[in-house]
Amino acid sequence: MLELLSYAFIQNALLAGIIVSIITAIIGTLVVSNKMVFLSGGIAHSAYGGVGLAIFFGLPMLLSTSLFCVFVTIIIALASYKNKENLDILIGLTWAVGMSFGIILADLTPGYQADLMSYLFGSLLAVTHDDINYMASLLVIVLIIIVTFYRDILAVSYDTEYAKLRGVKTKFFYTLILILSSLTIVISIKVVGLILVIALLTIPIYIASFYCKNLLSMMIVSAILSIIFTIIGLCISYEFDISSGPSIIMTSSLCALVTFIFKSIRN
């Protein structure tokens, strides 16, 4: 098995997997705690619009998708901050329109024959050095933001109205959490793809929630779990010659199921 590590593409995949695991664990904890899972699903699928733009105009994929997702996220944040009653409709619209827009642009691109499935389900083994640099940069940004604003983010996430009374800029932090979620989704596309990214944002957090008392410990435990799932999933993917994204998700889902059964029996 150790021979695997001698291949450059495996080293890249492993490094990218570990970086993305840490980011998705941190942001996933915020997404789950703030009940933004469905919202993240909408952003994830709208990312396809960014993929379409990149294909059509020949732009760098990560940059184009990031900008598109951030644009969509800011619209959602502004529209939903005060009035959450229509949020479901807004998410549904973003979800469908983003995907349709991306597919139409890909169809209109002359001679384009790339495999769109790789964006839907990930292609971890095809990660490049540029991708890793982008992922590492986002990890540094996420860590700096969390370390600097941990108490504000905690206050906004737990009780927005009270945080506002204490002078916390709640609208800013609500938008910031959403933007970080959208950037996390974009960098996860290579690892697990648009369809499966929600699993990476929720499953390790779900398992950690059984054992953790607070947000910080939940971030740390889910990051460790996520790294373990990614490494195991990657090994299984190589061994059985199956797609890496679904392999990682199935590994973590199985662990979540075992935890759930174990907890149910104990209770």
């Binding site: 904890t29 705690s33 703030n34 009940k35 905690l154 996430s157 737990y158 009780d159 109205e161 929630s209 953790c212 008392k213 607070n214 947000l215 410990s217 939940m218």
Partner: peptide, 9 residues
């Protein structure tokens, strides 16, 4: 108005 399952001490 508060998320009752929020992870916080």
């Amino acid at each position: 108005n508060i998320n009752l399952n929020f992870p916080i001490t």
